[in-house]
Amino acid sequence: MPENKSERLAALADQCVQCGLCLPVCPTYALDGNEAESPRGRIAIAAALARGLAPVTAELREPLDHCLGCLSCERVCPAQVRFGELLVETRAVLGPAPRRPRLLLAMAKRPSWLRLVHRLARWLGLSRWHRQLARRLPGRSALRAALGIASVSTGGPARKPFAAAAAGARLAMFPGCMASIEDADAQQAAMRLLAAAGHAVALLPSFCCGALDAHGGEARASTQAMQRVRKAWQGSGAEGLVTVTPGCLGQLRAALPGVTVSDPYHLLGVAGTALRFRPLPMRVALHLPCTQLNLARSSEVLLALLHRVPGLEVVPLPPRCCGAAGSHLLEFPERAARLREATLESIEMLAPQSVLSSNIGCRLHLAAGMAERGRAVPTMHPLVLLAQQLIEGNSP
């Protein structure tokens, strides 16, 4: 390991005071009851690797590969350890995990490929026969997990380009890669809501921000994606960046230091009475993704917005990681399924008419799990619900 990188990792690891306050909030520690599968254990492993005290073995790197990057530990850490930064930099040194499904991730990162996959799945009638094929594949198969997700995916509506206002857009919307297809309706909903709140928004081209690569140890590809983000941002002439996918936030902020990068909820929350909504007598379960809780930190303002819809009963699900975690659901599908169980049980107990979640990976992962249980419950991005109930003619 180059000396400058090893010194950097050692310095990040040395911030940890080994207090253990991170253990109760770590989903993988709860799953395994193993110190190595805790933030404290992973920091110790990273420190040993950085100082050359241990060789890189499959057994040693496995806990680092298992980490979900949920950042729950970082939020409760009294020493303010930058665990997310430590994890990404350690994985960059280790390189991609052996079980990383490169072809499937390449499809997810390329919107044109993903559109083709959706057309092919509809033509083949995947939703009718995927379970028969999945049963023939082992539980650890990435293809089996991908088939489950594809079977509950609609592919989203056609993406409609939005032009900047005549005076120039003050905000730019980053569509992402997979989200630009699967969450196209959420992006259009965000545009409509932001416009009603008085914000002109321009839509950037759709491509991967590099988050999947950064968390998968693909440092070079991540750097190239960040350069593309900066180029697109500079061409927009905007002052702030928004995305409907909280999983992109950390990577976008790293690519654009000094730029305000957020999800739309904070901007919509300060709109006050400019946004009014039609009544909707419905009971919904709200799933709060880890990135929204620990990175965007917009859960409270989202709840406030949903409570402004008359008649809407919103029941937040217990805050726990569902196991999707970017590429984790493909790399470790059995672990992802085990992590998902508690959330699925909560949904069944609540018996909602719909499940809301701001993260497309979480939403598909939960929908696939509910379908396996034979309890299909509609899932939706919260912005789509808000836009559907928006009263036209609002003025900021």
Rank of each mutant, 00 (worst) to 15 (best):
P24I: 15
A202Q: 02
V117F: 07
L124C: 09
G361Y: 12
G247T: 06
L249M: 14
M380F: 00
R276N: 09
A351G: 03
A58R: 11
L303K: 10
L126Y: 00
P319V: 03
K5T: 05
P246D: 03
A134T: 01
R363P: 02
G156A: 11
A179F: 02
C70F: 08
A336M: 11
P279S: 08
L366A: 09
S262F: 01
S354A: 15
R253T: 09
A200W: 00
L60A: 08
L288A: 10
V270R: 11
W113T: 07
A186V: 06
W123F: 15
E239D: 13
G148H: 10
G311S: 04
M282R: 08
L366D: 11
L53R: 14
C322A: 14
P101F: 08
L120Q: 12
L344F: 03
A238N: 01
P98I: 10
R297L: 15
F332A: 13
R75F: 08
Q292V: 03
R278F: 11
E372P: 00
Q224N: 10
L21K: 07
G272T: 06
A11E: 15
S298W: 01
V301C: 13
P378F: 09
T154M: 06
V301M: 07
L116G: 15
T260F: 13
G148S: 07
P111A: 11
Q234D: 04
L64A: 02
P289A: 14
G311Q: 01
K5Q: 11
L275N: 07
L12Q: 08
A232Y: 06
L68T: 14
G155W: 13
K160N: 07
C177L: 12
I360W: 12
R283D: 10
P111G: 08
F277Y: 13
E85Y: 04
P98V: 10
S180W: 01
E37Q: 06
Q187L: 02
P96V: 06
G323H: 10
W113E: 14
